[in-house]
Design a protein around this nucleic acid. Structure first.
Lengths: 336, 336
DNA sequence: CCTCTGAATGATATCGATACCATAACTGGG
DNA sequence: CCCAGTTATGGTATCGATATCATTCAGAGG
């Protein structure tokens, strides 16, 4: 930067201001500086800038898995909104492990993010402590935690499945099974899957169904393959079953393909519904009934919230904890 | 750090050494320091460390799209290997746009990555200049560029489709179409798709087929939906067609679902093959014949190469440009 | 003609770590 | 008992920008 300053005949301070933009630098001076920058091929060093200004200019985002387009869309939404502020985002993958989540947060905090956005509302004690110590805005997404760390942008996973149950009941299905959802062991558990299963169980009770059946599918991420195996088990264990709700569209798809293979008509022999409105569900044959949540909207809302929270933190007027609920809807298609 | 040092009764230098690990610090001193760190809830500031040591400790990785599990696997491979060195990675998405790629690189270089890994071998002039100016190791992946910027870890996309053509021919198919692959307009183009299409055309010529037909599908990312529409066009435009090779498994899947809908037997009426060995292809009905490339291996090889290149750069013994070829194979399944 | 105001710019300290060199304490060979 | 050679530790400059306060200068207003 000193080289640029010398070449443009100004001080480094003026170069810095010119590069930040918007500050008071005479137009002519700015042009001269920009020319010098180009000629020298100078690239601003944000590392030094961050140290000096105490603003790292980025936010950490943690999601469970790379391969889930729902989470990717959320990240996209966050990124879209925050890029308007010039804030970058750094994504980490927890592999559905809370221990891994904590490790990632420890690592990321070393780079001094201005905020952290996590997925889900269940974390290790260590994670909570780290985040509180860090004293930066935190947003939990994709869930409605009972005891939030900071802000929340989410929805009730249980409620979505209760709605789906109501819809299936309305359609005349009575013997409805559930595929997926673990029972909450220590680590590597799928909290949102468990919530959805809970919604299923609550609906079974509330709607006065006499029978129910859950086929758990083991550790997340729940994949296409799991769905194929689970649907066979479901039908074997409960031959009367009329419909199955899957914890996500991927196992729903796997289940449908397995049904084709065995010549079980969908929805004739067995109706199948999923969660997440993945692209695959719109083009699968039959198309798949699913729960649609605007994942991008979760991201955009979280992004805006984070933007406000960061501004609040800078101006010593911290934003009080916000809670944003994202609506969901049931999309009925051919598979039910 | 000064607080920690005071509490442990040592200098900041000793604290720094203790935290880096492996350096010469007496075991007892280290314990004392660690205790102070815990008590104070101190978190090392890597921003400052990077500035001082001139090692940012991270590598930039650019891939076209979030929603392509092939690229995600590559990133995973890179991350696995580099995390052994304590190097983190920062991922950027180009949305298949070379202009966006350049913008991302500009932004990322401001944070002084120790290396850059890009996807593909075609870039803007500006991108090449930026990377050369930066004087850091560069790896191009997923392709075999004619004029590499630095190192290469890839394979010939054209050759994979030539192989697929040979296999289909061996199986008795003669009238084989191709779905996907643009013709190389300025921006937003799918270079790997174009290469694959080129492979198709070369095979048609080499194998002495009398007829051929390409249905392009527009801008990437090529999706499931594209495949459904394209297969209909292909059959309408060339009713004799016996087989179709798709630029990726996603359109292949879309094509198969559309065939189900129209009761065109796969492979009876039309054989369909894809590229990429996505999970969907293993569990779709019928299972999809595809080209398998070990995406994780691309990542791991790129990671190792980057690790060596960075060490080379630090010790002033730059690693001469390497070129690693990743093998591919054809996986024949039910769809052909 | 002088003071005042605001715009444009500059000088300097500082952010929080590490590189580098110096020093102190110890070890073992002669 | 001395000296070379480790091992463990400390002092200080430095990385490259920006915050902060100071300064200069032009033009407005009295």
């Amino acid at each position: 930067m000193a080289d640029v300053a010398r070449r443009a005949g100004v001080s480094t301070m003026t170069v810095s201001r010119a590069l930040k933009g918007g500050r008071s630098v005479k137009e002519e001076t700015r042009t001269r500086i920009m020319r010098a920058v180009d000629e020298l091929g100078y690239v601003l060093d944000l590392t030094a800038g961050a140290l000096s200004s105490k603003r790292s200019g980025f936010v950490s985002v943690l999601i469970p898995s790379v391969n889930n387009s729902n989470f990717s869309e959320t990240v996209h939404g966050i990124s879209d909104v925050l890029s308007e502020d010039g804030t970058q985002i750094l994504v980490g993958y927890t592999d559905y492990s809370k221990a891994q989540e904590q490790r990632l947060i420890e690592t990321m905090l070393r780079r001094r993010p201005e905020g952290v956005i996590v997925t889900g509302g269940v974390h290790t004690e260590g994670t909570r402590e780290l985040l509180e110590q860090a004293a930066i805005p935190v947003i939990e997404t994709w869930d409605m935690p009972a005891d939030p760390i900071g802000h929340v942008v989410g929805f009730s996973n249980a409620a979505t499945i209760e709605d789906m149950m109501a819809r299936l009941l309305f359609r005349g299905y009575r013997k409805i099974g559930f595929i997926g959802g673990d029972d909450g062991r220590a680590n590597g558990s799928d909290d949102r899957g468990r919530e959805r299963r809970l919604g299923y169980e609550r609906a079974v009770a509330a709607l006065g169904l006499e029978t129910s059946h859950v086929v758990p599918v083991g550790d997340p991420p729940v994949s296409i393959e799991h769905g194929g195996r689970a649907v066979v088990r479901l039908v074997e264990e409960w031959p009367d079953v009329e419909a199955a709700i899957c914890v996500s569209d991927l196992p729903a798809f796997g289940a449908i393909m397995e049904c084709h293979r065995r010549e079980w008509a969908v929805p004739g022999r067995l109706a199948i519904a999923g969660f997440g409105d993945f692209e695959i569900s719109r083009f699968c044959w039959p198309t798949i009934t699913t729960v649609s949540v605007s994942c991008t909207e979760i991201g955009r809302k979280a992004g805006h919230l984070m933007s406000r929270a960061i501004k609040g933190a800078r101006s010593e007027k911290p934003l009080p904890p916000q809670s944003v609920v994202i609506p969901h809807s049931i999309i009925e298609r051919e598979s039910t």
